[in-house]
Amino acid sequence: MQSETVIALEGVSRTYGAGPTAVRAADGIDIGFRRGSWTAVMGPSGSGKSTLLHCAAGLERVDAGRVMLGDTDITTLDDDELSELRRTRIGFVFQSFNLVGALTAEQNVALPLRLAGRRPKRDEVRTALAAVGLGERAGHRPRELSGGQQQRVAIARAMVTRPEVLFADEPTGALDTSAARDVLRLLRTSADDGQTIVMVTHDPAAAARADAVVFLRDGRIVDRLAGADVRAVADRLVALEA
């Protein structure tokens, strides 16, 4: 089962704008992500990292190609089906943690389940929070938590639905080194437990924790490293930006 592809982009293209100012943010991208793999996506700014992530997650429509999540081509889904997908099969973690400020950590984590019309069991949510080391912070609101803690709540929220893929967009971008290390450790544990993770980052230290690193430039995949250390990732990135 190790080699089963969970999500695959097939010839995905996306162009912003038109005419001479048009930007090809994704240019015929073909890539598959295996179950339980953690893939980092890197590249200079403007290389199309975020576009790849957004297209893969169904947040952005594609101009050409398709995105297969299991047997589902998500590019053909309507808005309701995509909403359903987001609360059942896909999880998100972002640089700005995007928690609902009015809700406690516990309520934030329960949100996707509640939106799915389920009355979450208290244990279920507590377990998810405990898994990110915040079992005793359940009743706190985001503003009463540190950045690292907020990001861990966001991870718990993304993971509570046991999604097939977890998309992370610069998850450590707004964190200090030690908080970032905690978050990366958490992602590593999840991946080892079989969670598929696709993560956009510009931090070689974060990318080095992943199983593989994919490099993008001008909307195309230009390289792929597996099991590289921080140094190798950084060197490759510098070479690309040159």
Binding site: D79, D80, R86, N98, A102, P112, L115, A116, R157, T161
Partner: peptide, 12 residues
């Protein structure tokens, strides 16, 4: 705030 709800799976 509403977009956020959409992001975590809220339907229209």
């Amino acid at each position: 705030e509403l977009a956020l709800l959409r992001l975590v799976g809220g339907a229209r």
